Simulated assay, not measured.
Amino acid sequence: MAAKPMTKAQLVSALAEKTGADKKTAGEHLDALTDIITGEVSGGGAVTLPGIGKIYCRERPERMVRNPATGEQIKKEADKVVKITVAKALKDSVNE
């Protein structure tokens, strides 16, 4: 396991090296991809990244939660949460 996660700058450098593009172009493409995914998921849709997984928005119903400090029960309103289902190919590559 890596000590630290890859930063955006490192990801942009790796993307530029892999595609043969310059870092500025690679950064613009990464930002565009982020914008597309954010727009689709925030609108209630889902995005499948082949070999990586599926990113989607799920609604959580209203529920009772407990304050761990006081033990008091509080009603939490319904909300939405972003979920990621990891692709089998990625899971298998980690366990090789």
Rank of each mutant, 00 (worst) to 15 (best):
M1E: 14
M1R: 07
M1F: 05
M1V: 12
A2S: 11
A3L: 15
K4L: 07
K4A: 09
K4C: 04
P5I: 08
P5A: 05
M6A: 13
M6F: 09
T7M: 09
K8L: 13
K8T: 09
A9N: 01
Q10W: 00
S13D: 15
A14T: 13
A14K: 15
A16V: 07
A16D: 06
K18Q: 15
T19C: 10
A21F: 14
A21V: 12
D22C: 02
D22W: 02
K24P: 00
K24L: 07
K24D: 10
K24C: 08
A26N: 00
A26R: 03
G27E: 07
G27Y: 01
G27M: 05
E28Q: 15
E28R: 03
E28S: 14
L30I: 08
A32L: 06
D35V: 06
D35C: 10
I36V: 08
I36D: 01
I36C: 03
I36L: 05
I37V: 10
I37R: 01
T38F: 13
T38E: 11
G39S: 13
E40H: 07
E40C: 15
E40R: 09
E40K: 09
V41P: 01
V41H: 06
V41S: 07
S42T: 13
G43F: 02
G44M: 06
G44C: 00
G44W: 00
G45D: 02
A46N: 04
A46P: 02
V47H: 08
V47Q: 13
T48Q: 10
P50H: 15
P50R: 06
P50A: 13
G51L: 02
G51P: 01
I52A: 09
I52N: 12
I52W: 02
G53H: 03
G53W: 02
K54N: 10
I55F: 09
I55V: 03
I55N: 10
Y56G: 14
C57F: 10
R58A: 12
E59R: 13
E59L: 07
E59D: 11
E62Q: 04
R63T: 10
R63P: 05
M64Y: 15
M64C: 11
V65C: 11
R66V: 04
N67Y: 02
N67C: 00
P68G: 00
P68F: 00
T70E: 05
T70I: 01
T70F: 07
G71C: 06
G71L: 05
E72T: 06
Q73Y: 14
I74M: 04
K75R: 09
K75E: 11
E77K: 12
E77M: 12
E77A: 07
E77N: 14
K80D: 07
K83H: 14
K83F: 14
T85C: 11
T85S: 14
V86I: 14
A87P: 08
A87C: 05
K88T: 10
K88M: 11
A89F: 04
A89I: 08
A89D: 13
L90V: 04
L90E: 09
K91A: 01
K91W: 00
K91M: 06
D92W: 08
D92E: 13
D92G: 07
S93P: 01
S93T: 12
S93M: 12
V94K: 05
V94I: 11
E96I: 06
E96F: 01
